[in-house]
């Protein structure tokens, strides 16, 4: 998705003026943006705390600022700068974190981002965007740019099966119909579920939904989704994020507040590093039990045993 963001921003910089900061990352990816933006593209060096403060200062002068790095370097290292310098003032700064979840795989735990939106969402005015498919990126970048205020954009790797027709971008989307229970997946993880679900009978397979925006206060679930949860008396949520601060928690809270009846609920989430071993993104997904086969099996078990 990084290349798609670069392309979207190249288009955007023709339409509006903004500053773009990178924490010395983007080699063989952001060069087109650097060339298009000239002096508005600033390599702030390996100094993420300062980069975020500087971006806030730029925004205080009425200019939108984008900040880019590998995800944990953009939300974890400069957390206080995001809280105090950006969010306490509601400044128009957009944080772009590449490699959401376990996307950096064998690069190691320091490069993973499995608690990112859980840390961002409590901050004043912060909005989170998690594009599901690479095809979403242009619409997301435009929406982020035209929505004034702090935003965090979590990038992953698009996982849409070849030839699969995806619905146009929306914060909530029904990606795949099915007569079974609602399965809500956050971000790119959703794409990996499509292929295995397509192999199941439509009348009984889970109905797959994708969530791309948080918090739910600004992106509430649509009526169709709620109706599906009530009809199936079940909801399953999957995400590449730890349980605390997760979308699963937020959705459960939202539905409870709305009085939605849902007797069967399971949350499939990042479990950290249960074996102490490291590997690819799919290795960590598997260890967390959020890979497609594991999720489909657990949903079937839950529906059978709690049915």
């Amino acid at each position: 998705m990084r290349d798609a963001v670069c392309k979207a921003l190249v288009g955007l910089c023709v339409e509006r003026k903004f500053a773009f900061f990178t924490g010395d990352l983007g080699f063989m990816a952001l060069e087109p943006l650097r060339d298009a933006m000239g002096g508005m593209f600033i390599n702030a060096g390996v100094a993420e705390q300062n980069m975020v403060s500087v971006a806030a200062g730029v925004a205080s002068e009425g200019m939108q600022a984008w900040v880019y790095s590998i995800a944990p370097f953009v939300y974890a290292r400069p957390l206080e700068q995001i809280r105090n310098d950006i969010c306490s003032h509601g400044f128009d700064v957009k944080l772009v974190g590449n490699g959401g979840g376990y996307a950096y795989g064998s690069m190691g735990a320091t490069h993973h981002a499995i608690e990112d939106y859980g840390l961002m969402l409590p901050l004043q005015g912060m909005r989170v965007f998690v594009p599901v498919f690479t095809e979403d990126v242009d619409a997301v970048v435009r929406k982020v740019s035209h929505t004034y205020g702090p935003a965090y954009l979590r990038l992953g790797r698009g996982e849409k099966p070849a030839g699969f027709a995806i619905p146009p971008y929306a914060p909530w989307r029904k990606v795949l119909d099915g007569g079974g229970p609602a399965l809500l997946a956050v971000g790119p993880l959703c794409g990996g579920y499509i292929g295995p679900l397509l192999k199941l009978e439509e009348k009984s397979r889970p109905q797959l939904w994708a969530l791309a925006e948080l918090p739910l206060a600004t992106s509430p679930p649509p009526d169709e989704f709620i109706a599906r949860v009530e009809k199936g008396d079940a909801l399953f949520v999957a995400e590449e994020h730890v349980i605390q601060g997760s979308a699963g928690q937020a959705v459960a809270y939202h539905l409870m507040n709305a009085g939605v009846r849902c007797r069967r609920f399971a949350h499939f989430h990042a479990a950290g590093y249960p074996s102490g071993l490291y590997g690819s993104q799919s290795f960590h997904r598997s260890e967390s039990g959020i890979g497609p086969d594991s999720v489909i099996r657990k949903i079937a078990d839950k529906m059978r045993t709690d049915g």
Binding site: S53, V54, A56, G57, A59, S60, E61, H89
Partner: peptide, 26 residues
């Protein structure tokens, strides 16, 4: 303009404001 009190924030904010003025020739 800025909420301060946690030390080590004001200079980056100031640098950002100064940079924006340079960019805009303000």
């Amino acid at each position: 303009r800025f909420s301060t009190g946690s030390l080590g924030h004001g200079l980056g904010l100031s640098a950002g404001a100064a940079l924006a003025r340079k960019i805009k020739a303000a």
